[in-house]
């Protein structure tokens, strides 16, 4: 009997989960008609959900790719490519980052590994800045979000890359050494190579689920805040705070920092502001957000020294602001 249950456990569990879900569903549907909710809440909810529905495909694809990289690409592969010359290494690592699709949630652990293995800190920061910002999914979603117009996507990638290189050079001039908080031991798992392809693939999918759950809460908070702003903050106020070129850029960069959106999905939210703000400010949102944001800063602080994290934050913010103000007139 027990053996019978055990062998069919998977089916039973699946069945139970589906049953539980259907119960919750019918309960929820029952509520739908009874609940009296103010219409502004319903508006908020509709906008909130629409952002999520639109972002989910991109997040899931991003998570699957991130999972694939975590499993199939080793950090050694990347570090082998990094040249010995410090400045060459920065340009190199920014380019590798641009080719390497990663999200900002997953990239801090990777750069920690890279730095631990002797990659210069400046090169690692360059990699961290371009990794989430420049990759095929971000290009595709930015292209789509701005009405199939390639201009914003191209500017986002081009200016973003230039800014990443400038910041990495400055980090290289200011900081030496690993900048780790404490001496963190890096023990390497040694069972690589023992798994079959299928096992690796399975692990990759499981990894994707974990990655999704890590990211989902930040995405949901971001979508909710964005929906709040849209439902309750009149565009006129936002226009008044950010009426000048400089202040509107600052407002959008601040928004990007606090929303902490995934680079795969932030284009859609950035696009929703394009009727209110000039494209320079929108670019500030699109470039600054993926490079560094609230959740990324928090993750970095658990690895690097506080002073280092704050300096990097200030450097990125300052450079993005300056470059966009300089180029803003030409757009």
């Amino acid at each position: 009997m027990i053996r019978l249950i055990r062998s069919n456990l998977l089916d039973i569990t699946g069945f139970a989960v589906i049953l539980a879900f259907l119960m919750l569903l019918s309960l929820g549907m029952g509520f739908q008609s009874k609940l009296e909710v103010p219409s502004s809440i319903l508006n908020l909810n509709t906008i909130f959900l629409s952002i999520l529905i639109e972002a989910f495909p991109f997040v899931l694809i991003g998570v699957l790719i991130a999972g694939m990289i975590q499993i199939f690409v080793t950090e050694e592969h990347i570090s082998r490519w990094i040249p010995k010359n410090k400045y060459l290494a920065i340009v190199m690592s920014c380019s590798v980052g641009a080719l390497f699709p990663a999200c900002e949630c997953g990239i801090v652990p990777i750069i920690r590994r890279l730095v631990g293995k002797g990659v210069p800190i400046a090169a690692a920061i360059g990699f961290m800045l371009t990794g989430p910002l420049i990759n095929p999914i971000v290009i595709a979603s930015t292209y789509m979000a701005f009405g199939n117009d390639f201009k914003i996507a191209a500017l986002r990638m081009g200016l973003g890359f230039a800014i990443a290189i400038i910041v990495a050079f400055m980090v290289g001039m200011i900081f030496k050494g690993t900048q780790f908080k404490k001496s963190t031991s890096l023990h390497v798992h040694s069972h690589s190579g023992k798994q079959s392809f299928l096992e690796k693939f399975w692990a990759m999918l499981q990894h994707s689920i974990d990655e999704f759950f890590d990211m989902a809460k930040y995405l949901i908070i971001g979508a909710f805040l964005a929906a709040m702003v849209q439902t309750y903050m009149p565009a006129k106020t936002l226009l008044e705070i950010g009426s000048g070129a400089a202040s509107s850029l600052a407002v959008m960069m601040g928004l990007a920092f606090f929303l902490s959106l995934c680079s795969e999905a932030d284009a859609f939210i950035g696009a929703s502001f394009s009727s209110i703000f000039p494209s320079t400010s929108i670019l500030g949102f699109l470039i600054f957000g993926p490079m560094i944001d609230l959740k990324n800063t928090l993750i970095m602080m658990s690895v690097f020294r506080f002073k280092f994290v704050m300096t990097v934050l200030a450097l990125v913010a300052g450079t993005v602001f300056t470059i966009l103000m300089l180029f803003g007139g030409m757009l």
Binding site: E75, P109, T184, H189, H191, H207, D214, I299, S302
Partner: peptide, 21 residues
């Protein structure tokens, strides 16, 4: 836990970087 190969670049503090549930 999917401790396969190099996947766990975050092995020191799971709960901070990556929650396997």
């Amino acid at each position: 836990c999917s401790h396969v190969g190099e996947c766990c670049s975050h092995d020191d503090h799971h709960d901070h970087f990556h929650d396997h549930g």
